[in-house]
Simulated assay, not measured.
Amino acid sequence: RPPATSDVLYGQDDASAPYLVEKRVIISGEDLVDAQASFNQQNNEPVVTFRFDSRGAQRFAQATQQNVGRPFAIILDNRVISAPVIREPIIGGSGQISGNFSVQGANDLAVLLRAGALPATLTVVEERTVGPSLGADSIHAGVSAGLIGAALVVVLMIGLYGFFGVIAVVALAANIIMIMAVLTVLGSTLTLPGIAGIVLTIGMAVDSN
C-alpha cells in the first residue's frame, strides 16, 4: 500500500506504469502563465516551454532545488500527463520540458498544460423542467400517425391490386405482429424513433411486395 501522504496514479493510458505521487500540490494550474511547443536551440528537437507567475516561480524554484534528479509529476484530472526529471534548479520562473517528443506530442502537452491553467467553472444559463405529459403526447401523436399511415397503405394496396393486395396486407400484418412480439420478448421501450422505424419497415415491405 502507498504511504498515507502519497497516491498511486496512472498516465493517460491505463496500461502505463503507475506513478507514486505525493498528495501535496506544489504548484497548481493557476500559477501557470503560458505553455507553448517550441524547439531546442541546441539540437532542434521539439520541447515544451512554460512560464509561471511570481508566486509559481518562487514555489517552483524551491521545489526544483530540493528535488534535483527526481521526476516532477504533471497531473490533469487525476492522470499523469507527463513526469519529466528535474535536471537542475529552475529559479527564473520559466523552463522547458524535453524528451523524445514529436512535434504533435509537444503541441498536445502544451495544450494540456494550458487547459489545466484555465478555470473551468460551470454556470447555469437556463434550466427547464419537462413534464411527462409532453412525452406522452408525442408518443400518442406518433402512434396515431403510424395507424393512419398503415390504414392508407391497406386501402391503397387493396384498391390497386385487389385479391393480391389482400394477400400482401395479410403478410404485412404478420410482419408487424412479429416485430411487436420480438420487442415484447426483449422488453424494449417503444420510442418515437422506434415508431418511425416501424413505419419505414411498412413502407419497405409494401415496396418489396
Rank of each mutant, 00 (worst) to 15 (best):
A63F: 13
A63T: 08
A63H: 08
A63C: 04
T64P: 02
Q65A: 10
Q65H: 09
Q65L: 07
Q65V: 00
N67T: 10
N67C: 04
N67L: 07
R70V: 08
R70E: 12
F72D: 02
A73T: 11
A73M: 10
I75V: 15
I75T: 10
I75M: 05
L76G: 03
L76A: 11
I81V: 14
S82E: 14
S82T: 12
V85C: 00
R87Q: 09
P89W: 03
I90W: 01
I91S: 08
G92I: 09
G92Y: 02
G93K: 05
G93H: 03
G93I: 05
G93A: 03
S94W: 02
G95I: 10
Q96I: 03
I97T: 02
G99K: 04
N100S: 13
F101Y: 14
F101T: 01
F101G: 01
S102L: 01
S102P: 04
S102W: 09
S102K: 03
Q104H: 05
Q104S: 09
G105R: 05
G105D: 08
A106K: 09
A106D: 08
A106I: 05
A106L: 06
D108A: 11
D108Y: 02
A110E: 03
V111K: 13
L113R: 11
L113N: 08
R114Q: 07
A115V: 07
A115P: 00
A115E: 13
A115M: 13
A115I: 08
G116W: 04
G116N: 10
A117K: 13
L118M: 14
L118I: 14
P119L: 07
A120C: 01
T121Y: 11
L122I: 15
V124C: 04
V125Q: 14
V125A: 10
E126T: 11
E127L: 06
E127M: 06
R128P: 00
R128M: 05
V130S: 03
P132H: 05
S133I: 13
L134E: 14
A136V: 06
A136I: 06
S138I: 15
S138G: 00
S138H: 12
S138L: 15
I139V: 12
I139T: 10
G142Y: 06
G142H: 06
V143S: 01
V143F: 12
A145W: 02
A145D: 12
G146I: 02
G146K: 04
L147T: 07
I148T: 09
G149M: 06
G149T: 04
G149Q: 12
G149L: 05
G149H: 13
G149I: 01
G149D: 12
A150R: 15
A150T: 10
A151D: 07
L152V: 04
L152S: 11
L152E: 12
L152A: 12
V153E: 06
V153F: 00
V154G: 00
V155S: 09
V155L: 07
L156M: 08
M157F: 07
I158P: 00
G159S: 15
L160G: 00
Y161W: 14
Y161P: 00
G162K: 15
G162N: 13
F163I: 10
F164S: 12
F164K: 15
